[in-house]
Structure formats: structure tokens, C-alpha cells
Design a protein around this nucleic acid. Structure first.
Lengths: 248, 248
DNA sequence: AATAACTATGTATGCGATACACAGTACGAT
DNA sequence: ATCGTACTGTGTATCGCATACATAGTTATT
């Protein structure tokens, strides 16, 4: 029997059912729900032990009966905030991978504070692991071995994370520019164009001056997402073809 | 003429050369160097305005003459800590992309504190942009259009970031397990195996119980890196082939 | 020389995480 | 019933940190 790290035990509801003493007025679920609500409305910056305590109507120190530290709370939140993964339905594996990855990315965009938490720890909570389970399950159809399936899952998870991070960072940087009222710079690309010396950065400065990054006619942020996703899916498909062909 | 956001101006050395007053005893480069040294030895946790000030032998508030806030300092650091990108030499594009991505990842592993900073902002400093420049330059050989080149660069950058994050998180989690002296759990996989209900997580729990994640004979963390990298490179190569074939 | 712009310092504020000791509560043993 | 004990929530206290503000000292321009 393996002993679990405390956070993990808590995420899986393995708390020792207390026998004596007053009945708890709180539980971990209430606390994390409150914390998530704060993070959703004010971001991680507004999330303090005090603010969470205020939200649930309790003294700050009360929380420490249910959570070892703020970090633990964040870990629990980063699992708890995750909804159920998309259903497979009748989808072929490739389409499901696409749907799964997009849902993952959209989740991160709808809760940007997850961006700073997801990377910190390998997934150990029930909800994130269930996403993994579903993905691995779909890959069960294919010719990949277990290690490869796992690596594919990792790659897609990572892609969702970086794409969401990028979109969010770009949006945030734009807002910052606007908020600071930076004269004439409506746009990341314009700032770069201003600063890049064409002698040292010939390619990049040419691209920037051509207005590549402007939001133009055909462009959607979704197109960028699909671009990278399809690179991966094409790579995966090629690998499967190789595996299906010969056993080595 | 576009006005630059203050951090950007500072990163590019566009500070107004002061005319009156005492000669500055410091400059931004000294400060960032000190900050980087602290981050390298003690991690971001040990990095405070006070610790940096102590390192350069100055009162904490002196730093604010050179940096608008701690966040600005972090932004500057996250560019300043980046070395020159690898030389192309005689490498064909695919090999250079591989070398570039690996160097990027290795950088992040050697300075793990960069992991928490890189994602926050799109690159706006000279050094990170120079990496981008070199990569785009190499892609100049190929049949991709500008937007596609840019997207490829983004995908590879993102991959370096997620792979490094994953490796680092796994290592850190392992050390935490060990440090906490968690009985019998030498390993992430073992913890999961303990906690996963085979009814809800059939695939995953089977994998874990088979010891998939154990460091075994053939396995290297490098193999995982190459796996994902080659997925991307295969995808890129396929795209180029399509582009070279027909103009549409 | 006088002044204005600029540097580094010292002090002060407010917030956040968390250690610690306490008062109240309810279960289980007597 | 009663009493001890394990447990809950609270109040208070400490410490570190980012940063505002006022000040004293410095030098180029007038």
C-alpha cells in the first residue's frame, strides 16, 4: 500500500473521516469553488487566502484545516476547474483528437489563470486524468504502442497549452499597449517594426514592415490554432502508417 | 514615429542619455546580471528587489531608477538570459530546426525560472527575436509563405517550452515525493496506480500498473523529446511537399 | 555661483502567507 | 450523565515583500 502525498489524497477525497469534534462547517469542495470564482472574476492576482476566506464567510486561518498551503489550494483548483472531456460519439480518431485538443485549449482560454498552473505539475487529479483516459482510449484503436500513445497525448496537451498561452499573451500585451496609451502603436508588429534593425534582423523586420501580424481579411486566431494542430496530426498519422506497415 | 512601451525601450537600450545630475553608479545590464545570478542559484523564489539590490551593493529603492517594477525586471531578464542561437553551418533546414529546437529546450532546462516567464509575453527583446530571425531565415529556403513560416516558428518554440516544462515538472515532482519521504512511492506512476479506479480509468490504470513510466532500459528523456519533435517536423515536411507541388 | 535635473537612501505603508495559542464543540468511554 | 479528547474555527502576531514618498547629495547648464 502506497502512501499518498497530502494534496493528492485530498484531490481524491481520501480524507480521514473525522470522528470527534465539532462538525466541519466547510469542506474542500466549497473552498475550491469559492477560490475558482475569485480566480474567474479577478484573476490569480485577486486570489489570496483572505479573499477566499471572505468569500466563504470564514476567518482566513480556517482554510488551513482543509488545505496545507496556498500552493496546495492552487493545485486542487487546477484540477477542480476542469470539466468533463468531450464525448467521442462516432468520430474517427483524428477528428476526436482535434476536438479534444480544441476543447482543452478553449478551456484554458476561458480560465486563463489555469495557464500558470497547468504547467507546474504533472496531472494527478481525477478530472485531468480523465481527459487523458479518454484520449488514450481513442488511441486504443491504433497501431501505436503504449509509450507512443502516451507521448502523443503529451504532445497534444502541450500544444493546447502553448497555443492558449500565446493567444492570451498576445491579447494581454495588446491591451497593455492600449491601456498605456502608447502613441501610434496599435499593434505588436508595429512596435517590432520600429525597433528592429534591418541589418541584424533582415527577415523579421521585412515581415513586420509588411504588416504580417495585422488582423487582416482572411485571418482568424483559429486558423493559427488549426495550423499547428494539423502539423501534429499529420505527424501522428504518418507515424501510424509506418507502424501499421511493418512491426518495426 | 511610434512611441515604445517603457520595458521595450529599456531592453533595446533606448534610454534617454541623462545630462544633469550625478553619474549613475549602476546600469540596467548590471542589475539584470545580478538578478539572473540570483535566479540561477536560488530560483525565482529567492529573487526579490531586496536580494537583487544586496547583490549589486545598493539600497533596494535604487533599482527603481532603472526598472519600473519587478515585473519589468523579470521581462528584461527573460530576454537577457538568452544566449545566441545555434549556427546553421551546412545543415539542411530540417536538421537546423531540430538543433534550434533542442537548443531552445536545453536553455529552458538550464534556467528553469525562464519557464515561468517565457510564456507571459510575446518576445520583444533583441535576443529572443534573434532566435526567431535565424529560424525564419532558414525557412526562407522553403516553399512556405510568410504566415506559415511564422506559424512553424511558433509551433517549435511552443514545443521547446512544453517539453522543458514537462521534464522539469516531472523531475520536481519526483524530488518532492522523495523529500516528503512518501512511503513506497518512488515514482509518479506508482502514485497514480494507487489512486486510479480501473472501472473509470481502465486504459490509464492498466498502463500505470504495467509500469510504463518507470525509467527502464531503452528509455531516455531525450527519446520523448525527439518523439514530439519529429511529429512536428514530419508535419512540416508534409506541408512543404504540398506547397511545392501546387501553388494552392 | 545658482539652479535644476537627476541619483541613491531611509523611512513608512499595506498586504499576504502562515505560525501559534485559545475557546468552543461533540463524540466515546466511563 | 460526565468527562476527556480530538477536532473546529478565531484572533493575534510575525515576517517578508513591493513600492510610495520625502530627503540629501551631485553635477551640468545658466
Amino acid at each position: 500500500m502506497v502512501e499518498l502525498p497530502p494534496v493528492v489524497a485530498r484531490m481524491w477525497g481520501r480524507e480521514h473521516s473525522s470522528r470527534r469534534g465539532p462538525k466541519p462547517r466547510l469542506d474542500l469542495a466549497t473552498i475550491t469553488a469559492a477560490a475558482i470564482e475569485i480566480a474567474d472574476t479577478e484573476g490569480l492576482a485577486g486570489l489570496s487566502m483572505s479573499s477566499v476566506a471572505a468569500q466563504v464567510g470564514v476567518a482566513p486561518m480556517a482554510l488551513y484545516r482543509y488545505v496545507g498551503s496556498k500552493d496546495e489550494l492552487l493545485t486542487v483548483m487546477s484540477d477542480s476547474a476542469v470539466p468533463a472531456p468531450p464525448e467521442r460519439g462516432e468520430l474517427p480518431w483524428r477528428d476526436y483528437l482535434a476536438v479534444w485538443t480544441r476543447a482543452n485549449r478553449d478551456l484554458l482560454l476561458s480560465r486563463p489563470w489555469l495557464l500558470s498552473l497547468q504547467g507546474l505539475t504533472p496531472p494527478m487529479g481525477p478530472r485531468r486524468l480523465y481527459w487523458l483516459e479518454r484520449l488514450l482510449d481513442v488511441l486504443g484503436d491504433t497501431a501505436l504502442d503504449d509509450g507512443e500513445k502516451f507521448n502523443v497525448a503529451t504532445a497534444l496537451t502541450g500544444y493546447a497549452l502553448t497555443d492558449a498561452t500565446l493567444v492570451h499573451a498576445t491579447k494581454a500585451a495588446g491591451q497593455e499597449l492600449a491601456a498605456a496609451g502608447v502613441k501610434g502603436a496599435t499593434d505588436y508588429g508595429e512596435v517590432l517594426a520600429e525597433v528592429l534593425d534591418p541589418a541584424t534582423y533582415p527577415v523579421l523586420s521585412a515581415m513586420m514592415r509588411s504588416g504580417l501580424l495585422k488582423e487582416s481579411e482572411g485571418w482568424t486566431e483559429d486558423a493559427d490554432f488549426l495550423f499547428g494542430l494539423n502539423l501534429l496530426l499529420d505527424g501522428i498519422e504518418a507515424l501510424m502508417a509506418r507502424r501499421a506497415g511493418r512491426s518495426e
